[in-house]
Amino acid sequence: MPHDVVAHVPARRRPTAWRRTIGALLRREREVQGLRLTDVAVRARLSPQYLSEVERGLKEPSSEVLAALTEALGLTLVDLAQGIVDALGVPAARDRGGRPVLALTSSPDGWGRSGAVAVPSVPTGGPVLRAA
């Protein structure tokens, strides 16, 4: 190759805040429970190497992997989602009764344009799940 031609080398992608946050939350929970990486990997039916990459924010886990990991740690996906909201400093939305609302939507404004409903997740006034 001539010396004046520069080969294009793609820049290494930096982990997104989403991946880093998920990984950090999963690692923190694992460590709080005193579990080894291999303990959780076996419970979730993943390789320890893959779990390590998820915890370091290098891999973006699928919804199935996240479900397996949260179950292996005794968490729910809602627990993980709330941890992400808290870690990223997103202000908690509240319904008219003052209960926290977790928005699950793909709309740019975070609430959806049509069909959004607020449904109490527990009848005792717990968090509300709002989906578009």
Rank of each mutant, 00 (worst) to 15 (best):
M1C: 07
P2C: 00
V5P: 01
A7M: 11
H8L: 15
H8N: 12
H8V: 10
V9M: 06
V9R: 14
A11H: 10
R12M: 04
R13C: 13
P15V: 07
T16V: 05
W18Q: 06
R19F: 03
T21V: 03
G23L: 09
L26P: 03
L26D: 02
R27E: 10
E29C: 09
R30P: 02
V32Q: 03
V32I: 13
Q33R: 14
G34Y: 14
G34K: 01
G34M: 11
L35K: 09
L37T: 04
T38W: 07
V40L: 03
V40C: 02
A41Q: 02
V42K: 12
R43N: 05
A44R: 09
R45D: 06
L46C: 04
L46E: 13
S47G: 15
Y50G: 00
L51V: 00
S52P: 04
S52C: 05
E53S: 05
V54W: 01
E55S: 03
R56P: 00
R56G: 06
G57Y: 07
G57K: 04
K59V: 01
E60W: 01
E60G: 03
E60D: 04
S62N: 07
S62M: 09
V65K: 00
L66N: 01
L66C: 12
A68P: 08
L69H: 09
L69N: 00
T70H: 04
E71W: 13
A72E: 07
A72F: 01
L73G: 00
L73K: 00
L75V: 03
L75Q: 08
T76A: 10
V78A: 12
D79M: 01
L80T: 13
L80V: 11
A81L: 13
G83E: 05
G83W: 01
I84P: 00
V85T: 09
V85I: 13
D86E: 15
D86S: 08
D86Y: 06
D86R: 11
A87T: 04
L88S: 05
L88W: 06
G89H: 00
V90N: 02
P91C: 07
P91I: 02
A93R: 10
A93M: 11
R96Y: 03
G97D: 15
G98A: 09
R99S: 08
L102D: 12
A103D: 02
A103R: 11
A103Y: 04
L104F: 10
T105Y: 01
S106P: 02
S107D: 14
P108N: 05
D109R: 15
G110I: 03
G112V: 09
A116G: 02
A118D: 08
V119L: 07
V119I: 15
P120A: 15
P120I: 08
P123M: 06
P123D: 15
T124W: 12
T124M: 05
V128S: 02
R130I: 01
A131M: 14
A132E: 09
A132R: 09
A132Q: 11
